[in-house]
Design a protein around this nucleic acid. Structure first.
Lengths: 283, 283
DNA sequence: GGGCAACGATACCTTCCAGGTATCGATCCG
DNA sequence: CGGATCGATACCTGGAAGGTATCGTTGCCC
């Protein structure tokens, strides 16, 4: 199977429309129809059920959509990492680390300092992004290492080392009645009148339906809390970033958050190994 | 990047010889030279240093070799799993489980029985193979689930659930002086005169140099122990498979062995989820 | 119910590139 | 210095990928 065929199939499977898929791919519709037919012939499997009005995925088609996306990611990662390895060493980021915006800030600073002091350390680029985006960046080879937070992030498919565990706090507007409490339980804060929990985007960028404001990052969320439009349950290390308008109260029965450092399993980079070793020694 | 180009590059990178690589690929040498040149041009990276006598990998080339193999595995897995999903449901193995020959035998039987009793259970094919082969089968899409044993097997790149932990025993010929002991330490058995520890094959199928007989599976190993040509350190559950000629003594300071069930991270198969759930409930 | 629009499939043509053969040029070896 | 080895180059050919025009089917709407 060629990646071209896979890209074509994924486009059609996502659009469920040959015309739009062809447009997205920058080719005409007939060659696309033919390419898919040929792929089906070669696989000996019907991938799409098509009438002249609708296109739907067969069982085999949905398998290929999932597996094919993963395969295309892997190819893209190979290409990107090779390109990076070929750049002149000067100025090339030796490592790209991705982490959630506004999370683990001290841990990150500590880690970068400690690593920079190591013999043979290379420059580290840091990418900050929203949750769920990190995995993609790591899978696509845009990043070499990530700081992830279980149980929010899935560490599926990566090598990981645990760096630490912390409890969670609820972040509330300063002066809220609950802020006088020494601690609360989840039941105290779900369905708090006027202070809904926010909605985070799904991996595909869309938001699940339901109440609560849509947020993209932690800073935005804290802004909303300060405005009295939401409350947030966050790892307690976020306290370092709270200013006067905000207060935090431990939530006893919220799941503990584990910060892990994650990297692609076949990474053979000396720099990644060094960074991971530094990270595990910190804790 | 097309998979054809990747396959070509991997062949050359492995052979370090255009002629042999071309032969292996079933094409002539000149098109292969051109394909690699074109790949290098497109990536903007030298992958191979070639004189008219020798071919060596550049830094970028070794990155692409590792990453490219992983990407090709992913493509192959996508193809294989799609083909499987398209087979008529009758007679099609719903699940392919791979485990080491002669390991976790009771656990496996228990698991298969319990799963078969589940509503909606599908037929399960079991593949037995040597260590280090399981990961490959899982990565290439030849298998859906594996029973792995930490710390021997790497669980990198897979989802896992722990199923249980056990200590290790040393397996000795019956009547050996050490068999009267209630337990031993590693120091007691390394360099035991005439009873070396065996050598297992590397992932590429070759054996590391050194003393000790070469073994491919556990049955073979036990045979060698019975013949008085080796001793073996194994999880204690292997005791169920020992016959009169063999004896086992706990090794107090050998690392514990954890049996885990592992599956590809993007598996969306109902059957895999059911099997994993059954497995975790067993323990 | 007939006309129409939407959509995938088919027919047919063109272009381009993968692959083949022949040969060159460089390097190592005896 | 001559031959052998090996990758690169030159040149040719067939097939596949892509384009345009058009067909056949199916909803839909007046």
């Amino acid at each position: 199977m060629e990646t071209r065929e896979l890209r074509y199939f994924v486009a059609v499977a996502e659009e469920l429309h040959f015309g739009r898929a062809a447009q997205r791919l920058g080719i005409a519709q007939p060659p696309l129809s033919r390419a898919i037919q040929q792929l089906e012939r070669r696989l000996g499997a019907a991938l799409l059920d098509r009438t002249s009005r609708t296109v739907t995925l067969t069982e085999a088609g949905s398998v290929l959509l999932v597996e094919g996306r993963a395969a295309l990611d892997a190819v893209e990662a190979a290409e990107r990492r090779t390109r990076r390895a070929a750049l002149p060493p000067t100025g090339r980021p030796g490592l790209v680390l991705v982490t959630k915006a506004s999370a683990s800030r001290e841990l990150l600073a500590e880690l970068l300092d400690a690593y920079a002091a190591e013999p043979g350390a290379v420059p580290v680029d840091v990418i900050l992004c929203g949750p769920a985006e990190q995995e993609r960046l790591l899978r696509e080879g845009r990043a070499d290492v990530a700081l992830l937070h279980r149980p929010f992030d899935s560490t599926a498919g990566f090598h990981t080392e645990e760096l630490g565990t912390e409890g969670q706090v609820v972040v509330l507007p300063a002066g809220h009645p609950l802020t006088v409490r020494a601690h609360v339980h989840m039941a105290d804060i779900t369905g708090l009148p006027g202070l809904p929990l926010p909605r985070w985007p799904d991996p595909d960028g869309t938001y699940p339906p339901g109440p609560g404001p849509q947020v993209r990052d932690h800073a935005q969320l804290l802004q909303l809390v300060a405005l009295g439009r939401a409350c947030a349950v966050s790892p307690e290390s976020c306290r370092a970033q709270l200013h006067g308008d905000l207060a935090a109260v431990p939530v006893l029965d919220a799941p503990d958050v584990t910060t892990v450092i994650a990297w692609p399993p076949h990474s053979r980079s000396r720099a990644v190994a060094d960074l991971v070793r530094t990270a595990t020694r910190l804790r």
